[in-house]
Design a protein around this nucleic acid. Structure first.
Lengths: 328, 328
DNA sequence: TTGAAAGCGTTACCAG
DNA sequence: CTGGTAACGCTTTCAA
């Protein structure tokens, strides 16, 4: 059996209360008592049961992280930074991967609700309505999506798109395509919105290709649609989709970027390693996680802070491979 | 405040006990009672508090997953399969990333110990001694490492190396190098062991290059050492190291694979996307997670099963880019 | 400064 | 089949 506070109390010859105090707030007991308790605890290898503690305090010391797909390299990076930051504040992390299924999200959150002090929802796919049903229940910070009344951490997608469009325009491109990600993705909608504005501002034409899964296969599936359109460059929802496009383009004998420029989004590790290297938009992934944790901690501290912070992190175009039609 | 079993009991006009039974084992109450309880629970939106339950049952419904580095694409894949499998059995997953620091591992496990029913340790970096200190405390299944007295799930590294060496030998290679991963990695030791045996069996020479971090940067750091050695092919501890080698080789003007063949291990997604494509050894990453969960569930069920299962999963050479010196 | 006791929400046990 | 009550391990009053 596990060693409990009672065992420590017995060995130290004091009451449970004193053990509790000695360990939680050493200043509230006599030095001598503290000494005896500490020795007994060490001897027995006592570690307080956080589960039992949470029952009385209402605090669990855990935070729940829900995300759509760990197989997308974007998310592990975010999770890692969350985990690292959380550990620094002695919080443990529950992880739930919903496999891009909006229907799984609500039950997943519900299942964790009683064991966490708050949630970090990464790119949640559920409807606004479903997500709002959790408002007021537990502190929630949303990453990569903006939805009232939750605090959010997002990337400046519009500015990223502006940078991409400026770059492509300078290279001589006038007709571009966008391969959209999941309809349920706020980032997708935000990026498309920014892209539309940016292309319109420069009088460029924009062809939109259907919604695809945010994966390499999703990108490959949309490649032929893009080739059928009169464009010289294609922007993908994210890097994985971009890589899928390139893969299929190469299979069809289209030379990238000479014949067709491809631009991704996210700047996942692989973007810099593939050949041809992928031009993309970098997001501070570690920062998203870190800021998200900080916001959540704040929210969990003052329970009734309005907590409508909307942190928008900068994006940065990373030029690697794209060339313009002028050089063809 | 959250709705408790008492609220349901009051509304349904029955005792706590009946509510508990009606929800846990509907067959043990009168259909009419069951009906009333279920309606009351639904009406109030009651969800049992798993924390409180675990206090009395001793079961938490959680499993802890500890791994060295989520930034290594190998692990997210494993975690995803663990998470998916665990969800199927209604288990939630605690995730702890130790950042390749052996010293963090023991405290990380200790911190989670009270809130989980068992552990899945992925490629643990701690010493055998430290890990054994947990024997008997909680069910533990170790992935990617073999260590008594824990059940384990590993890949057949030796056979993978055998396949690689046979392939390289057939291509005409006789002198190869190995860039070792972390000294603390069992997989690294196991792969090196297999490689030594395989090269010795064919009378090939093997040059071993220092231990590096299992990252792209680690690989890049070892590249020049490899170039200084009289070899025609180099095997890397894993794909990330292989990609780092290639990156640096290209920077030094060495053409891969014509001038130097590079082989990785793990077959992470990016291996098939880079140019030149990476020859590597595939491991059933999803299978590792799945089998690990199954083994752990078994272990958690019969508390005193010896549980010394050692599942070794097959590996498969994936030939993509490597060529032999004969074609130079 | 310390000890006794209540209570967190649930399940398990024992009468009825 | 049902209700009352103890118990899980801890923190937090409340007295002493």
């Amino acid at each position: 059996m596990a060693v409990t506070i009672k065992d420590v109390a017995r060995l130290a010859g004091v009451s449970q209360s004193s053990v509790c105090r000695a360990l939680a707030d050493p200043a509230r007991v006599r030095p001598e008592t503290r000494e005896r308790v500490e020795r007994a605890a060490r001897e027995l290898g006592y570690h307080p049961n956080r589960v039992a503690r949470s029952l009385i305090t209402g605090r669990t010391g855990n935070i729940g992280v829900v995300l759509p797909d760990l197989a997308n390299p974007f998310f592990p990076t975010v999770v890692k930074s969350i985990q690292t930051r959380a550990r620094g504040f002695d919080y443990a992390v529950f992880l739930s991967d919903t496999d891009e299924d909006p229907a799984v999200e609500v039950p997943a959150i519900r299942a964790l609700a009683k064991q966490v002090d708050g949630f970090l929802l990464c790119s949640p796919r559920a409807t606004d309505e479903d997500l709002r049903s959790f408002a007021g229940e537990k502190p929630i910070v949303v990453l990569n999506r903006r939805i009232t009344p939750f605090p959010s951490v997002t990337a400046d997608n519009a500015d990223g798109m502006r940078q991409v469009v400026a770059h492509l325009h300078a290279l001589g491109h006038r007709d571009v395509a966008y391969v959209a990600g999941p309809r349920t993705s706020w980032s997708n909608r935000d990026r498309l919105r920014g892209l539309r504005a940016a292309t319109a501002a420069r009088g460029m034409t924009l062809v939109e290709a259907g919604n695809v899964a945010p994966t390499v296969d999703g990108g490959a599936a949309a490649a032929d649609l893009v080739l059928a359109a009169p464009v010289t460059a294609v922007l993908a929802y994210n890097d994985l989709v971009a890589l899928g496009l390139i893969k299929r383009f190469q299979a069809r004998g289209v030379v990238v970027p000479e014949q067709l420029s491809v631009v991704g989004f996210d700047d996942i590790l692989v973007a810099g390693l593939v050949g041809p290297p992928l031009t993309t938009v970098a997001i501070g992934k570690e920062q998203i996680g870190r800021v998200g944790v900080d916001l959540l901690l704040e929210l969990m501290a003052d329970r009734d802070s309005t907590g409508t912070a909307r942190r928008v992190l900068p994006t940065q175009l990373i030029v690697r491979g794209s060339t313009g039609p002028a050089f063809r």
